[in-house]
Design a protein around this nucleic acid. Structure first.
Length: 294
DNA sequence: GGTAGACCTGGACGC
DNA sequence: GCGTCCAGGTCTACC
């Protein structure tokens, strides 16, 4: 067993990150409600697949991995978890702004701002593609089937790692449609995998991009299947808060917050959060909404 | 720049 | 068990 603690820039709240959105429900993540352990089936660059267990260490993340790891593997795991939990991110300027608004008090109290990420942006783009024009149950199914069909197995278990771009690229849109049930998304998924695998599209470099959000958004919108909602979602994952991921749920939230459940368009959502400027995405995401579903 | 319609899957519902 | 309807963003064609 290899275990260590990765410290976070404070303030940090482990569960706020884990629960920041639905990602923890998507394979190869797993979450144990009783112990609050977040697990992830990780594939190192040398092809070794291992199960990482993460838990709350108050000021950081406690990490457990079964078996002896090489120095290279430990470094890759450290790097992956630092990215997944945005451990070195600084949200103090957002909190300064949030102090003015009662509906954002919880953001300060629970150190909101970090959004749980997958180790690679490729995985997050694929998962975001799977959230478009479908229900959450189908998103979970598509992710599960993609992993079952193309992921490398964790020895001695039924678990598999998220597939590499190469393994998906080696397939075909027809197979993706039939076996992963991604429907009309199949050509977009396959094209993305081919572009990343061939090196034509360096998605991972966008993690460290210093491009203005507007330019970064343009890059994301060039990906087939990624429209305004998906791009805004990915920008938030990348720590950019300038755009709001406006889907049908967002319209519902804003409708019940300010329009008594009446019809609302994307323009009203934009207008409601306009004053938050570069923090409008965070303000929307971490708003203390009246409507909670049902 | 705005809008209508097609694209698929899977769940709900009625029979 | 089968058929129908509906929800859910993106893309393309058209105005």
């Amino acid at each position: 067993m290899t275990n260590f603690i990765l410290p976070a820039r404070l303030p940090f709240n482990y569960l706020s990150v884990v629960n920041s959105h639905g990602w923890r429900q998507l394979a190869p993540f797993g979450f144990d409600e009783n112990t609050s352990t977040l697990s992830y089936t990780f594939r190192a660059s040398n092809g070794r697949v291992m199960q990482i267990n993460m838990n709350d260490a108050r000021t950081g993340v406690a990490v457990d991995v079964k078996g002896r790891l090489s120095k290279l593997e430990v470094n890759e795991i450290r790097e992956a978890i630092t990215w997944m939990f945005a451990l070195d991110a600084d949200y103090s300027s957002f909190y300064e702004v949030a102090r003015r608004e009662q509906k954002l008090r919880k953001a300060i109290k629970f150190a909101y701002g970090r959004v749980l990420r997958s180790p690679t942006l490729f995985e997050d783009v694929v998962k975001t593609l799977f959230t478009t024009n479908t229900l959450w149950g189908a998103t979970k199914n598509m992710t599960k089937k993609l992993i079952a069909s193309f992921g490398d197995p964790l020895p001695g278990s039924d678990l598999k790692a998220f597939p590499t771009p190469e393994s998906i690229a080696a397939s075909s849109p027809e197979v993706l449609k039939e076996t992963v049930r991604v429907g009309y998304r199949a050509p977009a998924l396959h094209e993305l995998a081919v572009r990343v695998a061939s090196g034509e599209l360096d998605l991972e470099s966008l993690k460290q991009s210093t491009l203005p959000s507007l330019e970064l958004r343009k890059e994301l919108l060039k990906i087939n299947g990624i429209g305004p909602y998906a791009a805004a979602n990915l920008l938030l994952i990348l720590g950019r808060s300038d755009y709001i991921p406006i889907d049908s749920w967002a319209l519902k939230l804003v409708s019940y917050e300010w329009y008594e459940g009446g019809p609302v368009t994307a323009k009203e959502v934009e207008r409601a959060f306009e004053k938050w400027g570069m923090y409008k995405g965070f303000a929307f995401w971490f708003w203390d909404w009246k409507y909670t579903g049902g």
